[in-house]
């Protein structure tokens, strides 16, 4: 099935794009690649990242790793358990309150529910703005506003989570099958009934799955909020790092890993029970 050169030339003349990118596109690609590499090198120079310094950093980490073994619960292990429980509670409470607010916001942010383009644009940019602020910054702000302790942590998680869940929910709703709401319209249902029976049954499992994932993810991030005084296990970690009790730090890290794994298992179980395998 060899092709004669004349036929290749004829096909190339008919469909030049089928024979690879044009010269301009290829030059553009090379320029972009050069720029990317130049930026990378510039950053390495800027931060003075030499192989020797990276190697020294790894050596320093090795020293800390040696101090971590064997892990030890220390004297105040009750404080550790208390902090851990607080982190989990903060994560769940913050995520749950956020979900309550994010469900209606998600519907408002979905293009197939709020059809007005300007309204949709405004709502979605508002979500983006909220998400632009990291949980830790919210925590710092709430520690100032409501004082030290878990309340600041719960509010920080909630504030950051509302925008994330609302965006995820809105996207799930936008990707929903349009035939189901069409059926509700056809039987004479109004727009609220359309959302209730045409959209909610298909997006609810997606929403639940995303909520459970966010609870797990927030449990991990809640362990850091204590560092800035917003309650939870983070305070215990930062205190022990300050005085160099690395064996106890490792103990806490192991507990966090076990806890996150347990939550992961639990959420998988809930998902299976409520959504089913399919």
């Amino acid at each position: 099935m060899r092709v004669a050169p004349a036929e290749i030339a004829a096909l190339r003349a008919r469909l030049p794009a089928a024979f690879g990118a044009s010269l301009a596109v290829r030059v553009g690609r090379v320029v972009l690649a050069v720029l990317a590499v130049a930026w990378l090198v510039a950053d390495l120079v800027w931060f003075d990242l030499t192989p020797a310094r990276l190697w020294a950093g790894i050596g320093g980490l090795g020293k800390i790793l040696r101090l971590m073994f064997p892990p030890s619960p220390g004297e105040q292990w009750l404080d550790i358990l208390n902090g851990l429980a607080q982190s989990v509670a903060m994560a769940f409470l913050g995520s749950f309150l956020a979900m309550l607010i994010a469900v209606p916001l998600g519907f408002l942010g979905a293009r197939n529910v709020v059809v007005n383009a300007l309204a949709h644009f405004t709502i979605r940019r508002f979500f983006d703005g909220m998400r632009g602020m990291d949980q830790l910054i919210w925590a710092l702000a709430f520690v100032r506003a409501v004082g030290l302790g878990p309340l600041a942590g719960v509010m920080a998680i909630m504030a950051a989570e509302i925008a994330i869940l609302a965006k995820l929910f809105a996207e799930a709703i936008e990707n929903a099958d349009t035939r189901q709401p069409e059926a509700i319209t056809a039987v004479g249902g109004n727009s609220v009934l359309r959302m209730r029976f045409g959209l909610l049954p298909q997006v609810a499992p997606v929403m639940l799955a995303q909520f459970l994932y966010q609870v797990e993810s927030n449990t991990r991030s809640a362990s850091i909020l204590g560092v800035v005084g917003a309650g939870g296990i983070g305070l215990q970690i930062s205190e022990r790092i300050r005085v160099g009790y690395w064996d106890q730090v490792l103990f806490i890290i192991i507990l966090i890993l076990v806890m996150v794994a347990a939550i992961d298992q639990l959420s998988a179980l809930i998902r299976r029970k409520l959504i089913g395998e399919g």
């Binding site: 096909l11 008919r14 469909l15």
Partner: peptide, 22 residues
């Protein structure tokens, strides 16, 4: 290669699909 691309285009043309190639 250009020849392989030509082979593919020729096959597509045979079944009236050349305009969908890209």
């Amino acid at each position: 290669s250009a020849e392989e691309r030509a082979m593919a285009l020729r096959a597509l043309e045979r079944f009236d699909l050349l305009e969908t190639a890209l």
